[in-house]
């Protein structure tokens, strides 16, 4: 009796619910549906997540061999890419330096240049020299001036067939005749085996000051005229001396030399002498 009554009530309740749902405006129906989704969504989310994770784990377990192999491959690839990056960076820097050297080469078109790489440094504390990878077979001669994009570096001291030694400007035995660019005073820059050079034989009445640029004077026929040698850092004047002297910061960082240019001064001088001789011959014949 009770069961039949309750079934009837349930049946009526469902019919009323269906009628209500049918009659309800669609806006309310959507809200209702979304309410139900929102109630179940946390549970659905966690079940879904767990399922995916389990699936992934199972897949990884099944394909663990492949994953390890791929991981190894990728690691090797990363290493190779990292090595490539280092090489690329190195090439970029080398490119920059070579561009600067090229600019210098183009700024002095009257001379022939030979580019060389630095392959060694002086093994003693007593001299400042470098070894380069070009020698007599490449047209380098003893005494040829050596420059870099910054300015004068030194001169060729010793020549082998394929290597040469360059005596740097900061060596005690190096000298270069210079002109102070602003005042046009002539002096001699000498190395003193440390990071600074010394400018000597500047007249007492000269108005040199820190910041003045020194260029090679061309006197002495070792270095061509007009190449930057350095910048005056400090001027000294002693009471009973005939000349002023100054400390000079070299235009080139001698510790960071990697590529240098050797000016083929020897051949240049020979050609000029030949030209002079020809002119003299022409004059005489006239």
């Amino acid at each position: 009796m009770y069961e039949r009554g309750s079934k009837k009530r349930l049946f009526f309740f469902l019919i009323i619910l269906i009628i209500i749902l049918t009659v309800l405006p669609s806006k309310w129906k959507h809200a209702f549906r979304m309410k139900i989704v929102s109630i179940f969504s946390p549970a659905m989310h966690s079940v879904n997540k767990t399922t995916i994770r389990t699936k992934d784990n199972l897949s990884a377990w099944f394909h663990s061999g492949d994953v390890k192999r791929e991981n190894k491959k990728l690691k090797i690839r990363i290493q190779s890419i990292e090595a490539d990056l280092v090489t690329l960076e190195e090439n970029k820097l080398e490119n920059q330096r070579l561009r600067q050297l090229l600019q210098l080469k183009e700024s002095i078109p009257e001379y022939q240049f030979i580019a060389a790489k630095v392959i060694g440094r002086d093994a003693t504390n007593w001299y400042k020299s470098i070894t380069i990878d070009k020698g007599l077979n490449n047209g380098i001669h003893r005494g040829d001036p050596v420059v870099s994009y910054g300015g004068v570096i030194g001169s060729v001291f010793e020549c082998g067939n394929y290597q040469s030694k360059i005596l740097l400007l900061n060596d005690n035995n190096s000298r270069v005749g210079v002109i102070v660019q602003r005042t046009r005073d002539i002096g001699v820059v000498e190395g003193q085996s440390n990071s600074l050079l010394v400018l000597n034989y500047i007249p007492r009445n000269s108005e040199i000051k820190p910041g003045d640029i020194l260029i090679s004077s061309g006197l002495g026929s070792i270095y061509p005229k007009g190449i930057v040698v350095g910048e005056i850092v400090k001027v000294f004047e002693e009471k009973y001396k005939l000349y002023k002297f100054a400390e000079v910061k070299p235009a080139v960082d001698f510790g960071k030399l990697e590529e240098v240019l050797i000016i083929n001064w020897h051949d240049h001088n020979d050609k000029e002498m030949q030209l002079d001789n020809k002119e003299e011959v022409v004059k005489v014949s006239k």
């Binding site: 002086d122 093994a123 003693t124 001299y127 020299s129 010793e158 030694k165």
Partner: peptide
């Protein structure tokens, strides 16, 4: 000899 090979000494 070694030192002089890598220097101008």
């Amino acid at each position: 000899i070694g030192v002089s090979a890598f220097s101008v000494i």
